[in-house]
Design a protein around this nucleic acid. Structure first.
Lengths: 231, 231
DNA sequence: CAGTGTATATTTACACTGTAAACTTAAAAT
DNA sequence: ATTTTAAGTTTACAGTGTAAATATACACTG
């Protein structure tokens, strides 16, 4: 007698549910995620999922955290490709290129964490902030390094207001003026790469030479030229 | 005997359906749009909507077209605030500021036309391309003007590939190299403002001074300094 | 070993969703 | 006056998330 799918999966059903969810998201997008369809794929019924995730939102949160970790891993790995002193610019560029490549590799994960919020889903920031900050630390780290080397002039960068209720309050509150300027520049660079990448993966940009990279590399060069002093 | 809501609406139910849909979208976002809830709000049953829109997608398309027209109206109005010769830079900046302001005024409309695709919705480009091109014409017009005045150097701008199947194929196909470079620069500028605006209205950017405009105006200045030659 | 407790599933049920089909009603056209 | 047509309704079906009650099987305890 062959073991049922249910018995095969026993013990790691929580992970199997996430895997099935990713497969479903890869096919039809993040917001058409069906617990019943996940159950069908795993040979269980939909309410069984409630033993592993409190509700649909909790499952989405688990997926978001996984996505942030996957994204953060790539960001940090790209940064560490150029670990030496004197390679600060290469580090920054590598994280920039990795940003787009990860998004192209996992467009639905990208949209899940950086796109429109899933309807009705309120992200629990307390849970997400650590993985968010880790994933952005590659960029902010590069900026900090370059600033410490005197190669970035932060005086003209607008400072963010530090108002409670904002998504990044817990991140900005303990930061001094310099750190806030670093964050602001990171946000500015992030918004540029996000603009292109989000339009590209949603098919709203025409294709460019070099697997679509020409316009993106133009932007990376623009960022370096505008903000990073030579030498 | 008071006239039923049904009788009140008769004759312009098609418009009333769209209005109810916008109200619903303003409350819960674009993808949680319910035909039955629209019917409830109007005192009709859901299947009656099928007399005005073939299905849910057709209603979404009508909403998208309305949103593009509203957006385009504001873009063109902003451009026309500085109609004189010699005001080309002010025109460009006014369209840039109007871009953000319209998004802040109508965040759900913005996300509907420029954000994640609504799950399962395939936009009919043949219908949408005219209103899309009109709404982008304020920006492309400003760039063309400035280029004609010798104030933009397009040589370094990457040219888009013109491949069928892309969203903008019908727009790029008849354009010559110069027009394609204008489009490419427009896409680049668009991706920058879209990056900031989309992050801002989804609450992923911290607030900045001047009603959040400080970082955005910094970007508009960056665009002008990088691409527009003085005089 | 017997019995109990707990974890994990299922079944059932409810309130939603889009939409297809058949039916009713009222106005317009011949 | 009769027929046609438009624009509603009711009914029905297949799907959704999820709450509540129920069944089952394993682990621990007396």
């Amino acid at each position: 007698m062959t073991p049922s799918r249910q018995e095969e999966q026993r013990g790691n059903l929580g992970e199997a549910i996430k895997e099935a969810a990713w497969e479903q998201i890869a096919e039809a997008g993040a917001s058409s995620l069906s617990l019943r369809a996940i159950g069908r794929a795993l040979g269980i019924t939909a309410p069984a999922i409630y033993n592993y995730y409190e509700d649909r939102d909790a499952l989405v949160t688990a997926l978001v955290i996984d996505a942030f970790n996957s994204f953060g891993d790539r960001q940090l790995a790209a940064r560490d490709e150029f670990p030496g002193p004197g390679q600060e610019l290469e580090r920054l560029r590598a994280t920039g290129l990795a940003y787009r490549q990860w998004a192209l590799d996992h467009p639905h994960r990208y949209l899940l964490i950086f796109g429109n919020p899933v309807p009705g889903y309120q992200p629990p920031m307390q849970e997400l902030l650590p993985v968010m900050m880790r994933s952005l630390s590659a960029l902010t780290g590069c900026i900090s390094e370059l600033h410490a080397l005197g190669r970035i002039d932060l005086t003209a960068i607008p400072r963010p207001l530090c108002e409670p209720g904002n998504r990044f309050f817990a991140m900005l509150e303990p930061a001094d003026d310099e750190a806030r300027a670093v964050y602001a520049l990171a946000m500015l660079i992030w918004s540029r790469v996000h603009g292109q990448v989000s339009l590209e993966i949603t098919g709203q940009l025409p294709p460019f030479p070099g697997n679509g990279a020409a316009l993106y590399e133009f932007e990376l060069d623009s960022i370096a030229r505008q903000f990073i002093l030579p030498n």
